[in-house]
Design a protein around this nucleic acid. Sequence first.
DNA 1: TCTATTTGACCCCC
DNA 2: GGGGGTCAAATAGA
Length: 279
Amino acid sequence: MAKTSTLNSMNTSHEKAVQAILYGQSCAKRLKLQLDHPMADGRSDNFFSDLSSRDSSSSSSPPLPQRSHSKKRKNNNTNSSENWRHDSPDPNYYDGFLWRKYGQKTIKQSKHQRSYYRCSYNIDHACGARKHEQKIKDNPPVYRTTYFGHHTCNINHNQDAGLTTVGDSVNDLENSRMIWFGEDLDQEKESHTSGLSVSVKHEEGSIKEETVDQYRHRGITSHDKDCQNVIKENHQPSPSGSYTPPSSSGSEIDMFDSDLLVEDLDLWDRYDMYDFGLR
DNA sequence: TCTATTTGACCCCC
DNA sequence: GGGGGTCAAATAGA
């Protein structure tokens, strides 16, 4: 009897863990697709490639910030030149490009400073890509990165370095790169500066880590039947075609970072990211 | 010594 | 005139 209840709770936590893994896996997979085949799905709403598609005006302008004696760009039409925006709980969110910080300002309407970056290949490759990063939320921390211009350097380090390395270490999870149940952002930062991570709140950290460890040690992979069942369950398409978080009666969803998830869901749903289909 | 970051100042746009 | 974007000298770190 006790065994049964233990087994039941195991199953519940098992499913939760698997759901968390699948959630991160799907995110990572989609992102990988975007990285490997930036325009493969024909959508411009991806993290990087749309830098060139959204702002047609900037493509006709010279990539190199040409200034004679001016210290500010001639046309400060921020709204039209803004290409992409990305919110992340990680201030060091790695987007595959190398950036050099060239400034930092206190913004009047925000208590947080804004950091200014330009592509490290700004000079070598006359790359005009820039980005601003600013903390927009304290708890949980959310950093908004706004991209301007587009990369003419065509150097995306996600394709040649970090991702493959990280991915090789988690072959069991097929194409998922990394799912981090880290305690805090610093840990997360350290562990994924060259790769990807999907952070899940450490609300009941020991339980979650234990759970994941359990399945890691037991050799649970995405090929397992339970996982496949979860995939089936989760893959019932919602009317919008987007991912609907596993419905839960009560607190099960609390296993995840509800704040982050809600935000991420909102954000990623916009990009139609929640498709568990293994394309 | 080289490279990256910090920071105060400059300058443009609204 | 103020806010925000960028420059460039100073500084820090490898």
